[in-house]
Write a protein that binds this DNA or RNA. Structure first.
Length: 567
DNA sequence: GCCGTTTTCGGCCCGACTGTTTTCAGTCG
């Protein structure tokens, strides 16, 4: 919900202002935590009577939330903002500049924003400040230049192949016994800040040297004994940690995070009179009781193994058994794909052959409908011909079932882009929003509800229409969509394309808790689009999805029975 | 500011690296 997003960024801003103002770190963290809770909240914050019931939201934050919802502002924040130059908040985005330095720059060198910082560097004003040597100033200049050209976070679809290339390159270096990526990438987050690589080696110098001279490295940011960091030509930062092999599990757990998960696990250790850090789990006598594998660490803490995708500091520590989360191998069909009939690059047969190679028993051909002119959407006449072509291909291609379908546009008012008589001829109907993606929340909710409740619709494709980093997409009341999807047995899609990942992770959890079924599809337009399925799986796992809640895991007969269900 | 299976008060994760200083503050994750 947009109010959730607004309030989340307001609390984040609050935290930054508090930092610059020199407030207690715990108070700052409390605000960051509230920002995070609001960002992940699926329900509309305005519909929650008592925000204090949310974990991490106390009396004071709840009052601020209510104040904002009623008046559109938070007085305390406004007063704080008035006490410092607004540009100082931008300065906090510069790598290497923290609250102390920003404050000093302001009070001792009249630096109030990025332009005045640049001017201060140019006229040599900073050089006279204590603890401000040439290297520090050079680093600030470098960070400023980098900040101008960089986008904040990378999509998982960009980061994953780079991380895998770094790992496969470095594992060949002499002495390396273990190497794996950790961090938010291992947790499968849709966007990644930087890539964390963890390695064990008997020749650390050799590995550090190989890492710092990797192809594409434009700057070595850190070069220590156990820690190195580089920046790549694509703008991404990669960190390498070198750890003892015996402590690999402890380090992997620590550097996989999330920070919130680590804190929760650490607190659990403390309650058991133990101490946990990146080197292992230690008892009261300081003896290491677990460190080699993550599994051993969790076990000693009395926890089942927690899959990395669940480690977000939410309810994962309350589980009694490791949930059987969905895996790539569980997917037996792809139910949303395009051919050259609309904007795809493959023929029906080529698409089917590609799907067969991936081990699917079924592929659905769902080209665009008539209103998607930009995507060469099919007129009713062309669709009729297409259905005939698909049925013919289904006869010709052995070893896979080809379903005749459509990705039919959901108009702004919720009507579908084909008449019911035509839709009834199809094996499968995926209904998706493609236009009017800025309409208000109320209209978007009504629009999507109408599509979910339509008896001929099987799946809602990329329900919000968001594109990561480009457009936020629709902002409907998600819980009411989940309830309707459960009641009508309409599946909600996780579009696996890494630009979309829509539904997002938190929505997946909300949908399955409400009893709705999920469909994970690649929306393939070309052969290698099938490779993106892994990102859909990671998002699904982050949403605690198990195979029994996903229609793509059904056998062919079960899938056909599900498609034949009545609303 | 938030929280509670010892607690409504007293904790709140903690180590590595850099740059500058000469023993450590600041930043990062």
């Amino acid at each position: 919900m947009s109010a959730n997003r607004e309030l989340s960024s307001i609390f984040q801003k609050f935290a930054t202002v508090l930092e610059i103002s020199g407030a207690s770190g715990f108070k700052i963290n409390a605000h960051v935590k509230v920002a995070r809770v609001l960002e992940d909240l699926v329900e509309d914050i305005a519909s929650i009577k008592d925000p204090e019931a949310l974990p991490g939201v106390g009396k004071s934050s709840a009052a601020k939330i209510k104040e904002y919802l009623t008046t559109g502002e938070i007085k305390e924040l406004d007063e704080l903002l008035n006490s410092i130059p607004a540009g100082l908040l931008d300065l906090m985005q510069v790598q290497g500049l923290g609250p102390k330095t920003v404050r000093r720059l302001w009070q001792e060198a009249d630096v109030v924003d990025i332009p005045t910082l640049k001017a201060a560097i140019a006229d040599g004003r900073l050089e006279s400040m204590p603890r401000m040597g040439k290297k520090t100033i050079d680093n600030i200049s470098d960070s400023l230049a980098f900040l101008e050209g960089a986008s904040a976070r990378s999509r998982i679809g960009d980061a994953m192949p780079i991380a895998e290339l770094v790992v496969t390159t470095l594992e060949k270096i002499s002495g390396v016994s273990k190497i794996e990526f950790a961090g938010s990438l291992r947790r499968g987050k849709e966007t990644i800040g930087d890539i964390d690589i963890l390695a064990s080696t008997i020749e650390p110098e050799l590995l550090a040297e190989a890492f710092c001279t990797l192809k594409g490295v434009t700057k070595v940011l850190v070069r220590g004994v156990t820690k190195c960091a580089v920046r790549l030509d694509c703008g991404m930062q990669v960190d390498l940690r070198i750890v003892e092999e015996d402590a690999f599990g402890a380090a992997l757990m620590y550097f996989t995070g999330s920070k919130e998960h680590n804190i929760m696990v650490r607190e659990r250790a403390i309650k058991q009179n133990k101490r946990l850090n990146e080197y292992g789990l230690f008892n009261a006598q300081e003896a290491c009781v677990a460190s080699h594998t993550e599994r051993a660490m969790y076990e000693d803490l009395g926890l089942p193994f927690i899959p990395p995708e669940l480690r977000e500091g939410k309810q994962e520590l309350t589980i009694e058994h490791t949930p059987e989360l969905i895996q790539l191998e569980d997917i037996k069909s792809d139910l949303h794909d395009h051919t050259i009939a609309s904007d795809g690059h493959l023929t029906i047969v080529a698409l089917a052959e590609e799907a067969k190679q991936r081990g699917f028993h079924t592929i659905a051909v769902t080209d665009h409908s008539q209103s998607s002119v930009q995507a060469n959407g099919l007129s009713p006449e062309r669709l009729l011909q297409h259905i005939s072509d698909i049925k013919q291909a289904n006869e010709a291609v052995k070893g896979i079932n080809i379903l005749a379908g459509s990705e039919v546009d959901i108009h702004a008012d919720g009507r579908l882009d084909y008449e019911d008589e035509l839709l009834a001829l199809l094996d499968i109907v995926v209904a998706s929003p493609h236009s009017a993606l800025k309409q208000d929340s109320k209209k978007a909710t009504a629009r999507l509800l109408k599509a979910i409740e339509h008896p001929l619709v099987h799946i809602i494709g990329h329900p919000t229409g968001r594109v990561l980093g480009k457009r936020p997409g629709l902002d409907p009341d998600m819980p009411s969509l989940f309830a309707a999807a459960a009641a009508c047995n309409t599946a909600l899609e996780i579009n696996a394309n890494s630009w979309r990942l829509d539904l997002r992770d938190t929505h997946v959890r909300g949908a399955i808790d409400a009893g709705a079924m999920i469909s994970i599809n690649t929306d393939a337009h070309a052969a290698n689009d099938f490779d993106q399925l892994r990102y859909g799986i990671l998002t699904a796992r982050r949403g605690w999805l198990t195979p029994d809640k996903c229609i793509n895991c059904l056998t062919f007969d079960a899938l056909m029975a599900w498609l034949a269900r009545s609303c």
